[in-house]
Design a protein around this nucleic acid. Structure first.
Length: 426
RNA sequence: GCGGGUAUAGCUCAGUUGGUUAGAGCGCAAGAUUGUGGCUCUUGAGGCCGUGGGUUCGAGACCCACUACCCGCCCCA
């Protein structure tokens, strides 16, 4: 039997109401905050991600689905990649369509996206090779921290609307590229003296990406980590001032946060503000719900004019997992037909098709089966469909034009004309 | 790439020191009940026991290999 490729999965009808709900709430949040949708291609030239995300990152290094396109007579096949994330593509589109050109100073471009991304990682709880992300990007000439606070305010509303409570907002500033680079050296110096106390993984991190040592879960490493210098101490003055303003904006909006000076970003393009919203319920080891930050240099990296940028992304797979059970049940229960048509005998069967058409034309969600069954069986099918009502159509009903409408939850039944029934569902 | 776990009915799982016909609950089907579902009772259908090899008189069980899935690590939004 052919099955799904490792790390991919089918999203079955039972779960779709949950996915739709997250998408619907997100779109509503974006509408209220002035974001407009953009859809970029699912694959791009490999170079876009190599430059945008960063050559040295693991994503580019070993986690991309890259393939060479078919060669033509006049050219080599070019290297293409299924998008591992969407920020680089959105910035590319922003530049390609010169969205900055008709803007006045300080005017922002607010974009959002929803769609699948691909990473060739080992799957685990809440992590798939084809996963779905929702994200926004704010681009323009301004890097006002009020932008950041407003976006986080929007996320706060979104989580509340989804009934996802018990989350924590973590913030940090990773500074300008220059101050970040000097901090990495400071950190490497500090680690050098304690190398003998670190685990094998951290030895590797010391070489490749010292910032990652902070994420180590080994107890002996944690002891060392506690005494390491933080990036906060190395911040340049402008970044420090920017971060202070950002916090003041959060305070003014009543948004609670925890400063985590050890929270760093893996992708090359991040500058200054970084944030995460972590969940605590039912997410396994993958408890980061939302991650984002500022990426002021990305446009230039991709050959565009100096542009400020700020954005976030969250995984739909994981957000759906984080929905509380009660909310999930409510959403699934709502995903049911309005009425299930039960008919008895061949004459009623023909008549039922007409009734179904009239109800549907009036906007009612109608379920029915085509088999002529005993009433008992038909009622069982009606209950199984989870329809709110069963509409009973036998010879008596056909001749009288009065149908039995039974509320399947309460068991109450009344006799109504088709017009009355349609009115009831309006 | 590395580590641990699991693989038996549609689903969730039992299955004793290796023993003859592989079980339960839920679900599904039929009936009790020929125009009224849910509850109850009765009956039934449904299994290459992940795949391949080995040990044995005999393997769902023990050994080896493989594959798949799950969880975690690496990495990361």
């Amino acid at each position: 039997m052919i099955q799904t490729v490792r790390g991919t999965r089918d999203l079955l009808p039972e779960d779709m109401p949950l996915w739709h709900r997250v998408e619907e709430v997100a779109r509503e949040a974006f509408r209220r905050y002035g974001f407009r949708e953009i859809r970029t291609p699912i694959f791009e030239k490999t170079e876009l991600f190599a430059r945008g995300v960063g050559e040295s990152t693991d994503i580019v290094h070993k986690e991309m689905y890259t393939f060479v396109d078919r060669a033509r007579a006049d050219s080599e096949g070019e290297s293409l990649t299924l998008r591992p994330e969407n920020t680089a593509s959105v910035v590319r589109a922003y530049l390609q369509h010169k969205m900055f050109a008709d803007k006045s100073p300080g005017e922002l471009t607010r974009l959002y996206y929803i769609g699948p991304m691909f990473r060739r990682e080992r799957p685990q709880a809440g992590r798939y090779r084809q996963f779905y992300q929702i994200g926004v990007e704010v681009m323009g000439s301004s890097d006002d921290p009020a932008i950041e606070a407003e976006v986080i305010e929007m996320l706060s509303w979104l989580l509340q609307e989804l009934k996802i409570t018990n989350t924590t907002l973590l913030i940090n500033s990773v500074g300008e590229p220059a101050s970040r680079a000097s901090y990495v050296e400071t950190l490497r110096e500090a680690l050098k003296a304690q190398l003998d106390k670190l685990c094998a993984d951290c030895h590797h991190r010391y070489e490749t990406n010292p910032l990652r040592v902070f994420d180590c879960k080994v107890a002996s490493c944690q002891a060392v980590i506690a005494d390491l210098p933080t990036i906060t101490d190395s911040l340049d003055d402008a970044s420090r001032a920017h971060f202070e303003q950002f916090k003041a904006h959060l305070d003014a909006r009543g948004l609670a946060y925890t400063v985590n000076p050890r929270m760093v970003r893996g992708l090359d393009y991040y500058t200054r503000t970084a944030f995460e919203i972590v969940g605590h319920d039912g997410l396994g080891a993958q408890n980061t719900l939302i991650g984002g930050g500022r990426y002021d240099g990305l446009s230039e990296t991709l050959g565009g004019p100096p542009t400020k940028g700020f954005g976030f992304a969250f995984g739909l797979d994981r957000m759906v997992m984080a929905l509380p059970e009660a909310e999930a049940q409510r959403l699934r229960a709502n995903d049911a037909p309005d009425v299930f048509l039960v008919f008895l005998g061949d004459a009623a069967r023909q008549h039922t098709f007409q009734v179904a058409r009239d109800l549907r034309a009036a906007g009612v969600s109608v379920a029915l089966e085509f088999e002529d069954r005993k009433m008992k069986k038909a009622m069982t099918a009606a209950a199984k469909s989870r329809a709110r009502y069963a509409l009973i159509i036998g010879d008596n009903e056909v001749s009288s034009g009065q149908y039995g409408l039974k509320n399947l939850a309460t068991g109450e039944q009344e006799s109504l004309s088709l017009g009355d029934i349609i009115a009831k569902f309006k």
